[in-house]
Design a protein around this nucleic acid. Structure first.
Lengths: 264, 264
DNA sequence: CGGCTTGTTGACCTAATTCAACCACGGTGG
DNA sequence: CCACCGTGGTTGAATTAGGTCAACAAGCCG
C-alpha cells in the first residue's frame, strides 16, 4: 500500500534534492499558503496516501448519501461535484483541479450530500479516514491545513453563490473561466491563460445555471468581443483583464499567495 | 452576562436529568450528530469561550479581508454573511441561527473573504484562535467536530448554489424558508413551523438572487396559495409538505439526526 | 405633523428559455 | 471507401420569467 507507483514520476522521496515535485501531493495547496506547511508535513501527507488508481472519463466516484471511509485526492485530470433536481436537471457545485482534495469533507461527515464524478480521465489517490484520524492526533497543524483546504472549497462555493445570484449570463461564464484559470495557474497548469478542460457546453450550462443554448450564444459573444474562446475543451483567455472586469472577478477568495498578484 | 437567560427556553431534546441547557453552547450541533460529542467535550467548548457581548441590529461584525484572531459563536439572534458586487448589489451567502459558529473558518484561514453582520439584535460569544489551537492539540475529536460544523456551512452553501442555479423565484423563496425552518427546529426555535426572522423583503431578495419587487410578488403568490406567509418578520408555514415539494427541499444536506425525519 | 423605511401594485422591457431545425465531426460497420 | 449515426455545437423565432421604473400606501418615529 505504498501507492508510490505514481511517485515514480520523478524518483523517490526523502532525498535531499527537495525538488518538491518528487511528492505525489506536490500540488497540494500550491500557491496558497502551503509555506505554512513544513517539508516534514508534506512528506507525512504523501506517505499517508494508501493507493492510487485511474478512473475513466464520466465515471461516478462517490454517490450521494453513500457512507465512505476514504477520501480522494486528485492527482491529475478533472472532477466535478453535482446535485440533480427532481426532473434530472443537474447543477454543478464544484469543479476540482489537480492538487485538490475532492471529498475530504467526508472525513468528518462520513457521507456526502452530493455526487462526485470524473470529467476526463483521472488519476486519484485515496486516504483512509483511519489514517486521517491518526494525523489528527499526531499532527494538529497538518490537520488544520487539511481543514483549511476544505474551507477553500467553501470559499469557492460562496463565490459560486455570488456568481449565480448577481451576475448575468456573460458574467457567469466569464467568472467561471477566470476562476479555473486562476486555480490552474496556481498549480502550474495554465500557461499564459491557456488550458484545456474536458467540458461540453452542456456541462458549462450545468455549472453556470444557464441553458446549453444560451451558453453557446454567450460563448460566441465572448469570442466575438475578443475576450476568450472555448472550443472542444481548449480555453484561451485573450484579454484576462477585461474578462475579469466583466466577471467582477477578484481572486481574493482563492487565498493565493501575494506574489500571485499578477492575476489582477 | 452569562447568556443563560436564553437557556431557560429549554430545548426539549436531550436525555434525562442532564439538562444540557446549562451550557451557553447548548445549541451547538443540536440535532446533528452532536451525540458524537461527549459531555466533557461540550464543557470544554463552553469554558473555552472567552467572553460574550451583544451587538445592535444591522451592525458589521467582521469585515471582508480583515485579519482576525477570534471566532464568533452565535448565542441568540440572527447573523448573515454577504458579498457586494461592484455596483453595491448585495448577495447573502449564509444566514446563521443560534448555535452556529459564524466565522469559525477564520481560525484556519485567518481572514475572511466576505462580510459578517447582525440582522436583528444579537448575542455572541468569542473564541480566541489561540484557545482553539490548544483544543486542536488536546482534543483531536472535538476539533473534528468543529471542522464538521464548518462543513455543514459548506453543505448549505452547496444547496444555495443549487437553489440559485436550478430553481425559479417561487422555488427559491420556498427553499429558503424550508431551510431556515428546519434549522430552527433543530435548535428548538421553530415551533410548529412558525418563527420570526428579522428580515425585510429586500434582504430576502439579496438571499435569493431576486429583486425586491419580485420577492414581494412571490410572497403574495405563496400566501394566496395557502403555503406560507411572511409578514413583518413573522413566518408561518401553513403547508410544510407542499412547500417542500415546491422547493425541491430535501433536508438531507443538513445532516440532522434520523429522528428529525419528521421534517420530511 | 413631516419624513423615513418597507411593502404593494401596475405597465413596460429585456434577458434567458424553449422549441426546433440544422451542421460538423468522429466513429463504426458494410 | 462511403453511408450512417450519435454527440456536441450553432442558429432562428416565439415565449416567458423576472427586472425596471414609477407611483403610492402603510407604518413608525422624532
Amino acid at each position: 500500500m505504498s501507492g508510490n507507483v505514481v511517485a515514480s514520476l520523478s524518483g523517490g522521496q526523502g532525498g535531499a534534492g527537495t525538488a518538491e515535485t518528487d511528492l505525489i501531493t506536490y500540488r497540494f495547496l500550491a500557491g496558497r499558503g502551503r509555506d505554512r506547511m513544513s517539508r516534514a508535513e508534506l512528506v507525512t501527507l504523501d506517505s499517508a496516501m494508501s493507493r492510487t488508481r485511474t478512473v475513466d472519463p464520466r465515471t461516478a466516484i462517490v454517490r450521494r448519501g453513500e457512507y465512505i471511509n476514504v477520501s480522494t485526492y486528485l492527482i491529475s485530470g478533472y472532477i466535478c461535484r453535482y446535485m440533480d433536481d427532481r426532473e434530472g436537471h443537474r447543477q454543478l457545485v464544484a469543479l476540482h483541479v489537480p492538487g485538490d482534495f475532492v471529498d475530504l469533507h467526508a472525513f468528518p461527515m462520513k457521507r456526502l450530500d452530493h455526487d462526485v464524478a470524473s470529467l476526463g480521465p483521472v488519476e486519484i489517490g485515496t486516504y483512509e479516514h483511519e489514517t486521517l484520524a491518526r494525523i489528527g492526533t499526531d499532527s494538529p497543524h497538518l490537520t488544520r491545513m487539511l481543514w483549511y483546504s476544505t474551507l477553500l472549497d467553501a470559499a469557492m462555493h460562496r463565490e459560486w453563490i455570488f456568481r449565480l445570484g448577481r451576475l448575468g449570463a456573460v458574467g457567469r461564464v466569464a467568472h467561471f473561466f477566470c476562476e479555473i484559470d486562476a486555480r490552474l495557474a496556481m498549480v502550474g497548469l495554465s500557461e499564459d491563460h491557456r488550458f484545456t478542460l474536458p467540458l461540453t457546453q452542456a456541462d458549462l450550462a450545468e455549472a453556470t445555471g444557464l441553458t446549453g443554448v444560451h451558453v453557446n450564444r454567450t460563448l460566441r459573444r465572448l469570442r466575438e468581443d475578443g475576450l476568450m474562446s472555448f472550443r472542444h475543451g481548449a480555453v484561451e483567455i485573450a484579454d484576462p483583464v477585461r474578462l475579469a472586469r466583466l466577471a467582477e472577478f477578484d481572486p481574493d477568495y482563492l487565498y493565493g499567495d501575494p506574489p500571485a498578484a499578477q492575476e489582477r
